[in-house]
Design a protein around this nucleic acid. Structure first.
Lengths: 185, 185, 185, 185
DNA sequence: CATGAATGAGTCTTCATTCAT
DNA sequence: TATGAATGAAGACTCATTCAT
C-alpha cells in the first residue's frame, strides 16, 4: 500500500524526451524501441509501461510539439497589439520555439508524413488570414498560406541544412513578407 | 550476339520509375521491394539484377529527383530577363513542376529527411541571393532563404493537406514576396 | 503476535478461487497473473507470496477441481441403493454439479489437455464397471467407458455450444443408456 | 519464367501435417512456429509463405478434421440401409477415422476450446436425431445429443488416457446405446 | 537474364517473475 | 506482508537478400 517513489508522469516525460532525442538523431523510421529504452536508461519492456506502442511515442511527440506551437499562435493572436506587431510576435515566437528545441523540431520531418499536422496547419493559416486581413483589405487565405509557408519553409531548410542560421531568420522573414523585395519609391 | 530486345539501361530506368511511383504513393519507409517489383511488372528477385540493394534503389530515385529539380532552377535563373521577371519565372516554374507531378512530389517528404537536398537547397539559395541582389542592394542570403522557404513551405502545406490549392499559389507567393503585406502609401 | 486478520491459508484459498474464476472465463492459456490478481483484488506481486509460479497456481486449481469431481462420484457410488438407482444418482449428480457451476466447468477444457484427469477418469470407469456388473453379467469396463463417455460427452457438447440444454439431459442419458434405442417387443 | 519445381499445395500439406504432429505432441498453446518449421524441415519464415499466421494453422487443422468427419457422417446418413445399420456405420466410421489419425484427433482438445466445433456438432446432432426418429417414435434431439456424446465422450477418454482402447469401443458404444444396460426379459 | 521459393536476422510486443520500498 | 515498477527472455511476424532452376 506504500506509494511508490516514482512519479509516473515524470517518468513518462523522461521516456518521451529520450524518444524525441532518438527520433531527432535517426528519424522515426530508423528508431528502435531498444534505442529509446537505452537512451532513457531503462529496459526495453519498461517503455511499454508508459506507452502502448512505438507509434504512441510518435503520437506523444507530436502532441508535445503542437501544444507548444498552438500556444505561440494563440498568444500572438490574442494580443491587443496592432496587427503588424502581432505578426512579428507570431513569426518570432514560432521560430524561437523551434530553434530552441532542435530535437523536437527534427520530428517535424516525420510528422509531416503523418496527417497529424493537417488540422494544425489549417488552423494556423486561418488565424493568420484573419490577422493579415486587418493589415490590408484584400489579403486572405492564399497570402496566409504564403506567410505560414515562409516560416515553415525556413525551418525546413534549417532541418535540411543545420548551417542555415534559423535563429537569425525571423527578421528577414518579416522584412520580406512585410516590406516586399521591390525597391520603394 | 545481337543486343537484347530490352537493353539494360532502359530496364533499369523502368524499375527506377516504378520505384519512384511506389515511394510517392506510400512513402519510402513503407515501400517494399515486392511493391516495386509488382509496379514494374517483374519478379522480386529481378530488381536485384539492376540494383544492388534497396538503399541503392533509393539513392538512385533521390538522385533522379534532385537532378530534375536542379534543372528547373537552372533554367529559370539563366534567362536574360530582368530580375523580377526571373524571380517570377522561378516561382512559377518550381510550383508548376511540383504541382504537375503530385506523385513525385510526395517523395520530397522522404528526401528532406536524407541529406540529398542539402547541396541542392544551398545552391538554390545562393542563386536566388544573386538574383535578388540585382533587385535591390542589401538583399542577400537571408532573404533568399525566405524566398526559397516561401516556395517550399507552400509546397509543404500542400503535401500535408491536399486541399491547399498549390496550383493557384504562385501568384500570392510573388505578391507577398515582391510587394509585401504593408499598405502602400 | 496475535494472528493477522486474514490468515494465510484463507487468503491462499481466495486467490485460488479467483484464479479458477478467471481460468473459467478465458481459459487457462489466455489467463494472465494480472487477471488473477485483479479478480482477487490484490497486487500482482502478492500472488507470488502464496504461489510459487503461474504453473503452481494452475496445478492447485486443477487439484481442487478433481478433488470436487472425485467427491461427487464417490458419493453416488457409496450409496446402498440398487444398482440402477445408483447409476441414476451418478448421472444426475454429475450433470447437476457441472451444470450448477458453469464457470468452473469451462476449466474442463483445459483440464482434459493436461493429464490430471487421467487417474480420475480411470477410477470413474472402474467404479462404474463395478456398478453395472451388478446390473447384468457381461457388462464391464468397455461399457463403463461408454457410460462415462455419454455423461462427459454431453457436457462437452454443452461446453462447445451453450445452447445445449445440459440441465435437461440427465433423463435422456439414462433413457438411452438404460433402455437402449431399439424398439421393445 | 521457368515453373518452379515445388508444388505449392503439396508443400502446404506437408507443413500442415508437421503442424498437426507438433500440436498433437505439445498442444496448440505450447506449440511454437519454430517447432512447426523444424518439424517440417524448413525455416521459420517459410511457414508464413503458406499460412498467414499461427492461428491460420489451427484453422487449417480444424478444416482438415471436419472435412473427414463430415464425410463420414454424410456417408452413413445417405445410405439406404435400415436405420440401425446406418447408426452402426456412423459410430464405427467416426471412431475408425479418429483412431486412425491420432495426431489429428489430439487437436480436438484445442478445437473444443474454439467455437469452430459448434456448428459441426449441431449439424451432427440434428442428423442423428433424424436418423433415430426412424428407429422409434419419441426419440429426438436430446437422445441424439446422448449418442453424439457417447461417441465423443469415448474419444475424449482416449485422448485423456491413451490406454483406453478406442479402436475396440465402437461395439460397446452400439451395444449400450442400442440395447441398453437393463436386463431383458 | 529471369524467377520466386526459401532464408533468417531483426523488431515489436507480451508477460511471468523479481525486488526495492 | 503488500505493492507495483522494472526486467528481460521469449515468441510472432516481416522482409531484404540469396540462389537453385
Amino acid at each position: 500500500m506504500s506509494p511508490k517513489r516514482v512519479d509516473k508522469a515524470a517518468r513518462k516525460q523522461e521516456i518521451l524526451a529520450a524518444a524525441v532525442r532518438v527520433f531527432a538523431r535517426k528519424g522515426f523510421a530508423a528508431s528502435r524501441i531498444d534505442d529509446v529504452a537505452e537512451e532513457a536508461g531503462i529496459a526495453k519492456g519498461s517503455v511499454y509501461l508508459y506507452f502502448d506502442s512505438r507509434d504512441a511515442l510518435l503520437e506523444a511527440a507530436f502532441s508535445q510539439y503542437t501544444a507548444d506551437a498552438d500556444a505561440i499562435v494563440a498568444q500572438a493572436l490574442n494580443s491587443t497589439d496592432p496587427p503588424l506587431e502581432r505578426l512579428a510576435l507570431l513569426v518570432r515566437g514560432t521560430i524561437d520555439v523551434i530553434a530552441g528545441a532542435p530535437d523536437l523540431a527534427r520530428t517535424l520531418l516525420d510528422l509531416w508524413a503523418t496527417d497529424h499536422m493537417r488540422p494544425a496547419y489549417k488552423a494556423y493559416r486561418e488565424a493568420v488570414a484573419e490577422l493579415i486581413a486587418q493589415i490590408r483589405p484584400g489579403l486572405g487565405l492564399p497570402h496566409a498560406t504564403v506567410i505560414v509557408g515562409a516560416i515553415e519553409g525556413v525551418v525546413l531548410q534549417w532541418l535540411v541544412d543545420p548551417e542555415v542560421p534559423i535563429a537569425d531568420l525571423a527578421g528577414p522573414v518579416l522584412e520580406v513578407v512585410v516590406e516586399g523585395l521591390r525597391e520603394r519609391a
